[in-house]
Amino acid sequence: MQGETEKSDHIVPYGTYVNVWIALMLLLAATIAVAKVEFSKYSVFANLLIASLKAGLVLFFFMHLKYEKWVLKAMLFMVIATLTAVIALFFADVMFR
């Protein structure tokens, strides 16, 4: 993080956004291709991985997370970790019933 100035009025160049969009479209094509190929077990994993990559791109560039302070990133991480832990606890019940 460079400096402590307010970076909320940081202007992201149009080109960055367009590049991110191209990447998103390529990932969309990739995820459809993965589904068509059918690796059975692994395709679920691969599809969710690609989805997370896409979500990451949207978060970091479209939603400016890249340019935000660490506090916000840490809080978002905490929220996602909370949801993950809740899911894990659900499965601690459902998987061992």
């Binding site: 606890l89 601690a92 459902v94 998987m95 061992f96 019933r97």
Partner: peptide
Amino acid sequence: SGMSDTARIIF
């Protein structure tokens, strides 16, 4: 409630 033993111990 009928929850699994694993979950009961963890909770």
